[in-house]
Each structure stands twice: as C-alpha cells, then as structure tokens.
Simulated assay, not measured.
Amino acid sequence: MLAWTAVHSYAVNPKSIPAVSLTPAFVEAGSPELIVVSAPKAKSVSGEWLGHKLEFFQRGPKWFALAGVDVESEPGTSTAKIFAETGSGRLDLSQAIELHPAHYRTGALTVPPKFVEPSPEEQKVIAADADLKAKVFASSASEPLWHGSFRAPVLAEPTDSFGTRRMFNGKLASIHKGMDFRAPMGTVVRASNAGVVVLARPLYYEGNCVIIDHGLGMYTVSMHFSRIDVHEGQRVVAGDKLGLSGATGRVTGPHLHWAVRWEGAYLDPAKLLRLNLNAIR
C-alpha cells in the first residue's frame, strides 16, 4: 500500500497542505505513475524520485508529472521528494511510497547465433548503436507533447511478454523491456500519442526502429519494422502511420516490439495503455 508522509521544513496549517496523489495507487516494478499535486497557489512544483527528476507541468489548479518505476527496481520503501513553491514559501510534500514486486515469467527463444555471440565487427555496430541511442535519449522536449491517453500502436493481439527473463539459445540475455504484439508482416504501425520522431533507422538488435519523444523524458520505442514511413524530426499525432511491422533485427518471426521509457526507466506498456490521461488538457 502507499504510505503518505508529508514532511515540512516549517510549521504550516495542515488544511493548507496541497493534496498529492499517485495513479495507480498500488505501485509495482514497471508501473507508470501519474503524480498529481493539487496546489492552486503554487508558482512551481518540482521533485525527484528513484534517482530521476520529476518534471511537473500545470493544468489549471493542478500540477502533473508522468513518471514510473523501472521494471528492475527492487521492492521496498522509496521517497518521492516533491516541493511546491508558493508566495509564502516552500512546501515539502515528500511522499513515502511502497514499491511492490511484479511477477514476471522466464521464456526461452532460439535466434541466429550472431545475435547471442556477435563477431568483433558486429560488436562495433552494436556499440555505435548504443552511442546513438544514448544521444537520442539525452535530450527530451521541455514540455509534454502527448495529449490524452496513449493508444495501442497496432490492431493486433498483445502478449504478456513485458518483464520476461529471456533465455536466448540457452543463455540468460536480458529482461524483456517491452510489449510484443502478434502483428503479421506488413501490419500498419501507428503513433500511440503525439510527439517528435527522434530516431527512424535500422539498428542491430532492434532492426528498423522508430523512437518518439513525447516530452519530459517520456519515449515510446517501436522495433522490427519491415518499412519505416517517417523521418527524424517529424512531428506526429496519435494515429499517424509510422510504418509497417516486420521481422528485422533480433527476432524469431514477424511482430512489433513496443517499449515505453521514462528517464531511463522501462515501464510496462500495458499499464500505460490502461492509464486514463484524457482529463489532462
């Protein structure tokens, strides 16, 4: 359960303390979280949680931050440090938040050997890809570009693959940090929300890949396209065509891998799709 603990740097009237809420209230590893501070008199709201900066934006009397808990986060008590600047001073609204474990399964896959033990030349390509992605993720828009709730990128059945401990050719390779959709070759892939395309090119593991910056550190990553129909720097809105699904990169067959990343933390896409953001205008 959530444990709310408001800590104040000086004495204030409890009735004047702005209200803080998290949705969903039950916080698990991999969970996206909408943090809302109801503070009509606040001039600004800032914060930090799990080593990541909380970027708040204002809509009417409320302040919002779309954040989350990385899939590999350990369970236990964490503290979200939240501060509201008002005309009469600074309020410390820090919250003690209990992180609960999420239970994910282990899966085994067989892929071409080069994706498990790449050659020295292939390792150079992988390293260059890593540098490129680091640059892409280092600079996000300073305002929210998304509007309303996120939507599924394809009309195809999703799997429960997020968080699966993946064994490739008998070796533990990684934790699966995205959602796989059973999208046949050539299925249209669409933008899940508004943003800017910050990467649209082939990568070693990801194959043909499209990354969209939704602002304030929130990105969606779509992989394994057979064809990309957008370009880097292009602004998109929810529903815009990004390309066609395929089987490029490290795959066992045609599908769409769709990931959600916030400030370096990978979040459960299924939980983001269930998060109602339509009231934020």
Rank of each mutant, 00 (worst) to 15 (best):
W146N: 00
L22C: 13
V198R: 15
A29Y: 01
A183S: 15
P153D: 14
S149F: 05
A80E: 02
P113V: 03
V125L: 03
R190E: 13
A191Q: 09
S94R: 03
E117C: 04
L109Y: 12
V189C: 04
S73P: 03
P153T: 01
T159M: 03
V197T: 05
H8I: 02
H176S: 07
W63F: 14
R59H: 12
V189W: 05
A108D: 14
K15C: 08
L242K: 00
A194S: 12
P118I: 05
A156S: 02
S88K: 08
V7S: 07
L22D: 09
G68N: 12
A80V: 00
A152P: 04
G51D: 00
A102W: 09
F115P: 02
L99M: 12
R235P: 00
E263I: 05
Y204F: 15
A279T: 14
N193K: 00
E74D: 09
I17T: 13
R151T: 11
I82R: 01
P158Q: 02
A128P: 07
R90L: 14
A108L: 05
R90K: 09
T187P: 01
R182K: 11
K41E: 08
K62L: 03
G195R: 02
L54F: 02
G243R: 01
P144T: 04
D240E: 01
P254C: 07
D160E: 08
V71Q: 06
V189G: 05
A127H: 04
G170H: 00
W49S: 12
G215I: 01
A270M: 15
E157F: 03
A259Q: 10
D160Y: 08
G215A: 02
L256Q: 00
V136K: 13
R59M: 14
L109G: 04
L22K: 08
N169V: 09
V37M: 15
P144M: 01
L242T: 05
F64W: 05
T252S: 04
S142V: 05
H257E: 14
G186P: 10
A173G: 08
M185E: 11
H231G: 04
H257I: 05
S9H: 10
A259E: 12
E263S: 11
M167N: 11
E55C: 10
I17F: 10
P118T: 04
